[in-house]
Structure formats: structure tokens, C-alpha cells
Design a protein around this nucleic acid. Sequence first.
DNA 1: TAGCAAGTTGACCGCCCGGTCCGTTTATCG
DNA 2: CGATAAACGGACCGGGCGGTCAACTTGCTA
Lengths: 199, 199
Amino acid sequence: MTSTRPLRADAARNRRLLLAAAAEEFAERGLDASVADIARRAGVGKGTVFRHFATKDHLLAAIVLDRIDALNAVGERLLKAADPGAALLEFLTVAAHQRQQRDLSFLQDAGELPAEVTRARAQMFHTVHALVDRAREHGVVRVDVTGADVILLMCAPNYVTSYVPDASPDLWQRYLAIIFDGLRPEGAHPLPHPPPAAP
Amino acid sequence: MTSTRPLRADAARNRRLLLAAAAEEFAERGLDASVADIARRAGVGKGTVFRHFATKDHLLAAIVLDRIDALNAVGERLLKAADPGAALLEFLTVAAHQRQQRDLSFLQDAGELPAEVTRARAQMFHTVHALVDRAREHGVVRVDVTGADVILLMCAPNYVTSYVPDASPDLWQRYLAIIFDGLRPEGAHPLPHPPPAAP
DNA sequence: TAGCAAGTTGACCGCCCGGTCCGTTTATCG
DNA sequence: CGATAAACGGACCGGGCGGTCAACTTGCTA
């Protein structure tokens, strides 16, 4: 157990400022936003960043962890929703909405993330699998798609809209709808390749 | 007009080696593959890279231009194919297959690309619009999707599979199929957002 | 309010990158 | 061949990055 003595007031404030600034900076400039810029945006010195987060990756991980946890809470709730199809769609909508900006994708890179992130991510994968299974059993998702498929596709709407220079911030909804229609059983054509085992 | 005296034999060979090495390196490491690594892989000095290509971006542009031109040739042919639905699917298949590896996406970044690339890209966009229009008129693509939608979605299969660590090199086919089913009129639900004007 | 640990800071370090430059090598052609 | 311009290569440069550190400031507590 880490015996966490509470943070000093200014330190706690700076930590919050840093997380907010980093989220904005990553959103605008992608993962190679510089630590110096993040510090400037937060109004603190660069050294302060590294007092709170061992490395730039740890800072990123803290942000990502927050988001995954939030998503997990939503998923947990939706598992008990009445309409399994609507529940899955809502989950994907919340996920896309939350990651409205640049990618950050929490699936990614496996650059040896802290164990907490790995665990939260695994939990999210589990939730998605459950949501998909339930939707499939109710016949609102085609029989040949798996949770892994949905996990992979769930980042696509944000990705494709990132190429539109002055896109409406809601454009991703259009592509989520198209992809979701592709997941439905009506008019489904057989898939040419088995699903991945991984996620 | 650039009065192009023919390249010396060794220079021409090195140019080819460089393009090949750069394509592989970009494929493996993404757009931030280093010029030094590319040179090493091609078996030439770093200075030679810049003799052939003014900047790293010009090198990238040369590769991208090749691919877009190849794609345009395919598109041109498919515009005269008998089955418009199969033609569109084949075009997207060729596009995805060619970009099997990492992204490079030719839509992207607008980092002031050379005029040739911009023009070739515009021509490709035009071709896609035509393919989509023809497919829509034949009722194999839903009425509410546009060429711009397909252009955006066409990179998604490669993107999503890039997150699977040891994916089969053909996994993208699965997601192209799902997305393509989403483009079909059968079982289509109305789209929540107008299409983008841009591409 | 005094003392101290906790927190802050920005100069600094080493690294790697894209790009330059010039001494050297080499394909080409009269 | 031998002369010459084209091509080559790698040391070198400036800049920006992630990360460190020691001197300084400040919130907490007794």
C-alpha cells in the first residue's frame, strides 16, 4: 500500500491544472505535444510536471485512465439497460463523444503502460464484450461480429473525421451510424476473414 | 518546363533503392521514420537522400504520388465495369490492400504538399465520387451517403487493424466488409448528421 | 510565528532529428 | 584513356525534445 499523505494545497491545484492543460494540449496537437508547452499552458514550470508525473507517458496514462474509468462506469450502467441494442449504441456514442478531439487511443501502442491502465482497459474490453453479446443474443447485432470487432471499430468515427479540416464537432455521429448499420443483421453479407483473437 | 537530362546510372539506381527503403521504413515505423534509417536501409549516405529529395516531406510525397496514381488507374478502369457495386468494393479493396501497412494517409495533414500530389489526390476524389454516384444510382449504396463519406471511410479498415498486435495481414478485409455493409441500402437507418462538404 | 519538509523553478544535459557542405569517388563521353 | 561534371557520403550544425537538479519559495503544523 502506498501510504499517501495528502497533497499540499498548491500541489493539488497544480496537479489539476496540469491534467487539464495536458488534456487540451494533447487534444490539439496529438501525442507529441511537448511537455514544455503543457507546463506553460498550466502556468507552471517544466520541473513541476515531472514532480507530479515521472515521465510524459505517465502524464498521458493519468489522463487516459480517467477516461477509461468514466467509460467503464457508463458501460456498467448500460449492461442493465432495457434495450441492448440502444445500450451498445449509447456506449459507442459516449466513447466517441469523450474522445471528440485527437486520438490518444487507449488501445494503443502497448508502450508498457502502468498496470492500472492495463487493468482498466481490460475491464473496458470485458464490458464491451458483454454489451455486444447481449445485443447479439437479442438479434440487433449480426451473429458474426464479436466484441473484439466492436472494440476495434469504436475508434474509427473519430479517426475518419479527423481528416476533415473544419469539420463540425459532431460529424463523427454520421460515421458511427454508418458503421453501426454495418453491425446490424439486416442485409449483412458474410465476412471474409475470421475475427482477431487479441482484444 | 524542367529540362531533365537523364539521370546517371548509379543515381537512378539509388533513387529506386531509396524509394523502396523509404516505403518499407514508413510502413514499419510510421511517418516519423528517420531519414538516417532510410538511408542506411537503402545502403546510401544520408546526403544522397537530400540530393534526390529536397526534404523528407518531398520523399514522402514521391511515394504517396506513386500510390495515388496507381489507384487512379484502377479507378478509371472500374468506372467502366459492368457491376457498379462490385466496382466500388473492388476499388476500396485495392486501396486498402495497397496501404496494407501503416498509414501514410494521402488525405492528410495538408502540410503544403507539392502541387502534383494535390492534383492527383483531387483526381482520385473525383473518381471516388463518380464510383459512388454510379453505385447509388444502381441502388447498391444507400441514398444518403456521398463520395466524401466513402473517401473518409476508406482508410478506416487499415486504421482499425493497426491496433491488433499480431494481426493477419488480411484482417482489414473483415472491417471493409462490415463498413461496406453499412453503406448498403438494406436495413439502413437515417443518418444523424449531414455529410461534410470538404473532400 | 518559527521551522521545516514539501513543492517549485528554469537553467542545464544528452540525445536525436532534419538538413547542409565540401572533399572524394565515379559514370560518362570525346 | 583522361577529363569533367555528376553523384556520393559522412562530419557537422542548429534546434527541440524529455528529463535532471540544486537553489529557492511556501504551505503546514506545533
